[in-house]
Nucleic acid binder design. Structure first.
Length: 589
DNA sequence: GCCGTTTTCGGCCCGACTGTTTTCAGTCG
């Protein structure tokens, strides 16, 4: 059993315990362990083999036993018992914004409701408002929340779809008769939200792919089965489409299934101009018509005298002609990234120490990183006071004296308070190497107020970067009332860098905003906002956003060497290009 | 249920916001 599956199991136990009314700290212990497993460097199975499960942060004797059972048997008697005790639909109800475990319990106990459908009916029939502690507003909030869920139904964030796809790919690759497995569809194109997980399986001879997948422990039901196609739904509600193709037809099928349809249309128009037809070049009109016409996508594109167009660009936004005319940006890859400028550690709400995060960053080949904890007002994240921040700066200075091939920048993710002030004094901000300013409160303010806060931050002499500029949480929370054009205008005017927050929960700025930013000449930084070592890997998601936004390495801050990064910061340009000396209280630009 | 540079018990993530309420409970970040 993989770490991911263990994590899912523990998270489900946590949810079910919470629905049972267990004490919050116990529930949190399960959730914390689930998170730790999700991003563990090493497979839990090998830790188990060495008897070291309890080295996982948040895993003690009890959880180690439960994990061991899952690893040994693939099952958990505890989880199965919980599933018996708590109706499964209650867990779905937790996903309704505004509904927590307490309310779900009240609703279940009084009305016997166990599904989202029953919940909606009860709300429409005004039966929720009669329950203790609930009123008409709660009832309306539930209906609104259900609407939002429906909108997002069958839409999964990339960050959930991708690990699941990788898991299935690995397992399918190991089956006899399978030559090759790849992801296709919107997931391969790197869309932030995807409808389903499309997998293309190239087969050579008899295979049991369909049989194995139909009884896979992650699979809840088989939606459709055809000779060369299997459609599934997982327990987590993700739709998975598996397409079986003969090995020699793999490339055309993969190209076809990757899409997008708009890209295929654009290719068609481009081909027509040249009196060619896509079918004759080997791209089928329907999957069933795929022939063994080319062996790689590169080969197909070259038949059209085009350079290879990466999946992230295949959206029918003019990429074909741009490719032809050499107007596509240089392809950015993970190798272009020289450092990560938004990192949390145990000082605030991160999981690992500065040293551990540094080691993880060095292992990725980075040259630098910025430690940017939350500031004081974000108490939930144990935000740092000025004193704690200065102590941390000392530790960073000591570490830097030790390191000869890596630099740790001392920074902060300072809160932009509801009134537009920053959460730390100017002289503190001035003494740091880099300052990210972010909004974490007052999400419901009107556009005027939100923009006034962002403007104040961007005009602030010591704010270098605006973190997750729109505040959206994918599939969970819309952005606050940002006027994007005005934001970009201000960023350009003030020389403030905007973040592409690479956390798959956010992807903020998104690809469209990133593309607009480039037009405004605004510099962008891809930051992971990592709270543990494993999540440094989220850089991949940020790269995907950048590619889809047609950004090249030159449009980004952290593709530069450290010297170039420092020179691009507002604080080091406003005063004649001199780097600010820590603690000197530099003159304002 | 986890954890420990004062602890093997008693903390642990706190405060704003909202709605349902006459003083607070639940949710969320």
């Amino acid at each position: 059993m993989t770490n991911l599956e263990l994590s899912w199991a523990l998270a489900e136990m946590g949810d079910l315990l919470e629905l049972k009314g267990e004490e919050p700290f116990k529930v949190r212990a399960y959730q914390r362990a689930a998170r730790a497993l999700e991003h563990l460097e090493e497979e839990a199975a090998s830790l188990y083999a060495r008897g070291e499960l309890e080295r996982i942060p948040g895993v003690g004797k009890n959880l180690a036993k439960k994990i061991a059972e899952l690893l040994e048997t693939g099952r958990s008697t505890f989880l199965e018992q919980l599933r018996q005790e708590v109706p499964p639909g209650l867990r779905d109800m937790l996903a309704v914004p505004g509904l927590g475990a307490k309310s779900v319990r009240v609703i279940h106990q009084h009305l016997g409701i166990t599904t989202l459908e029953e919940l909606e009916r009860a709300a429409r029939e005004r039966r929720i408002r009669q329950l203790p502690g609930m009123g008409s507003k709660t009832e309306l909030a539930i209906l609104r929340g259900l609407d939002m869920l429906k909108e997002n139904r069958d839409r999964i964030p990339l960050g959930i779809a991708r690990p699941l796809a990788q898991l299935f790919c690995r397992q399918l690759s190991a089956l006899p008769g399978v030559a090759k497995v790849e992801v296709a569809g919107s997931l391969r194109r790197g869309c932030s939200m995807v409808g389903d997980v499309d997998l293309v399986v190239g087969v050579k001879g008899p295979t049991e792919v369909k049989e194995v997948m139909a009884r896979h422990p992650q699979v809840k039901e088989v939606l459709l089965e055809e000779e060369n196609r299997l459609s599934l739904r997982t327990w987590a509600g993700v739709k998975v489409e598996i397409f079986l193709v003969p090995e020699d037809k793999f490339a055309p099928a993969w190209l076809y299934l990757t899409g997008s349809p708009a890209h295929r249309e654009e290719l068609g128009r481009f081909a027509a101009e040249r009196h060619l037809s896509l079918e004759k070049l080997g791209l089928p009109r329907r999957l069933e018509e795929a022939e063994a016409s080319f062996r790689s996508e590169e080969e197909f594109y070259s038949r059209l005298e085009l350079p290879f167009i990466v999946p992230e660009w295949r959206e029918g936004r003019g990429e074909v002609w741009a490719a032809r005319e050499g107007r596509l940006p240089a392809l950015i890859t993970l190798k272009d990234i020289k450092g990560d400028l938004h990192i949390h550690t145990r000082y605030s709400d991160g999981l690992h120490t500065i040293r551990e995060m540094v080691e993880a960053a060095r292992a990725r080949g980075y040259r630098y990183m910025a430690i940017t904890e939350h500031s004081r007002s974000l108490a939930v994240a144990r935000g740092l006071s000025a004193e704690q921040l200065l102590a941390q700066r000392e530790e960073i200075a000591r570490l830097n004296r030790e390191l000869d091939d890596f630099v740790v920048l001392s920074g902060i993710e300072v809160d932009i308070l509801p009134d537009g002030r920053l959460d730390l004094e100017d002289d503190i901000l001035a003494s740091l190497d880099i300052v990210i300013a972010s909004i974490h409160s007052g999400f419901n303010q009107k556009e005027e107020q939100i923009m006034a806060r962002l403007e104040a931050a961007m005009r602030h002499p010591w704010v270098d970067i605006i973190g997750h500029p729109t505040g959206r949480m994918l599939g969970r929370r819309p952005s606050y009332a940002v006027n994007l054009e005005r934001l970009l205008e201000l960023a350009a005017e003030t020389g403030t860098i905007l973040e592409i927050n690479a956390s798959p929960d956010r992807l903020d700025l998104d690809e469209d905003a990133a593309r607009r930013a480039k037009e405004y000449g605004v510099l962008l930084a891809i930051n992971t906002d990592a709270h543990d070592m494993g999540r440094l890997e989220d850089m991949w998601y940020g790269i995907t956003v950048a590619r889809r936004g047609w950004l090249g390495p030159e449009d980004l801050l952290n593709t530069r060497e450290l010297d170039g990064v420092l020179k691009a910061l507002k604080r080091n340009r406003g005063n004649g290009g001199k780097h600010s000396a820590p603690g000197q209280g530099n003159a304002r630009p």
